[in-house]
Design a protein around this nucleic acid. Structure first.
Lengths: 210, 210
DNA sequence: AATTCCAAAAATTTTGAAATTTATTTCTAT
DNA sequence: ATAGAAATAAATTTCAAAATTTTTGGAATT
């Protein structure tokens, strides 16, 4: 296995709680699993610590990020801040192409979500849903004109997922129903260029995690 | 030289434009300067890329971050966003200890600044000033209750400095006079818990870089 | 019983060189 | 002359082992 594949595999495992929170990640052990040297794993873990999925401390190695209620609300509040600002700027600067991309991303997302709302066992499709959800939210802020904001948002999003997966929740039918209308509200407000409504819709979408 | 020292040295060099913007940073060459192996330098550069001072691309190594007008305004706007929100939350949650720390940080900063305002050649003291300035701004947001916001702000601050040093500016006497009253305005608004005034003061302090 | 100290084990960092990839130069054919 | 291909050079990544550092467990002291 090469570096990019190891990176993707570890990122996926960290985002799906394949490691328990705070668990030590030892290059010398993961090495065996990937058939590479310990230094290669170390390299990958250093890069994952940039994203915030992994904790790194000098001379004491790597750990899967801990998940606590405090950190959950911290990540959520930060995500709200970035997404509200990104959406505000996108509404100010984004043109028709942005609207079209946003509409397309929402269409894909809502299609997946309506299937999940019916399914009894959505777990195996959560990865697919998460990707579509990220694409929607990222597209929302994509016209903000700030690469730094976009990059930071991406990092925050994966940390958000990492915090949430370990917190079990009942994916009852009405769970996805709620999510569906929340995404719809964000889309509607964004296309209407209603900044305050959109900020509210973003907050309402995430407030259950505060 | 050990890793922490190499890290500090490279960080300082990157923040004082000892490397030209976009310059390639080759482990094999820096190795000689520090008397260590190339991999050790690589390790340090990976960590500096987490902070945003260094650009890293797979299979094509490291570069000192480029400085462009676009990036300057991007970093500045992001810094304003984070500092305004951090200050707002600090004013809401910070107690007397926070006020005391902020007051102390401002006192140190303004002392340095009034000396700089008189000096004809402030360059050698810019590092000292930068440290004090960071401490003041960091203290301002320190009671916000969001470790993620604080960490991101710290990264953004060093990137801000990196962008600014390469852009020469006239440090005339009135330059520091302006800075002094801007910091005073931020302090006054923060201690008065006047959120809107403080946000304005933060914006006014940084708007010259937009 | 608790704390400190020491030795053994485990884990992390560093090293120097080999293997791979990318960039540059040279050569050939059009 | 120019474009493309091949050969060469340079740089990056990977490796496995050595050197440090931290952690662990037990003995000795308070």
């Amino acid at each position: 296995m090469h570096t990019p594949e190891i990176y993707d595999d570890l990122q996926r495992k960290l985002m799906t709680a394949a490691f328990s929170p705070g668990e030590k990640l030892k290059p010398a052990i993961l090495q065996g699993e990937y058939g590479c040297s310990a230094n290669t794993v170390r390299d990958v873990l250093l890069r994952l610590s940039k994203v915030g999925l992994v904790d790194f401390e000098m001379q004491r190695g790597f750990r899967a990020r801990a998940t606590t209620p405090e950190r959950r609300t911290d990540v959520t509040r930060f995500r709200i801040l970035l997404e509200q600002e990104g959406a505000r700027l996108s509404m100010a600067h984004g043109g028709l192409p942005w609207e079209a991309r946003l509409s397309a991303a929402h269409h894909k997302l809502s299609h997946i979500e309506s299937e999940l709302a019916q399914s009894d066992h959505p777990e195996p499709y959560m990865g697919l849903w998460s990707d579509a959800e990220f694409e929607f939210h990222e597209t929302l802020i994509s016209a903000c004109g700030s690469p730094l904001l976009i990059e930071t948002y991406a990092n925050t999003y994966v940390q958000f997922r990492q915090q949430m997966v370990s917190q079990e929740r009942d994916f009852g039918a009405n769970y996805f129903q709620a999510i569906i209308s929340e995404h719809q509200a964000i889309l509607d407000a964004a296309l209407a260029r209603n900044v305050e409504a959109c900020k509210c819709a973003i907050h309402d979408h995430l407030k259950r995690n505060l």
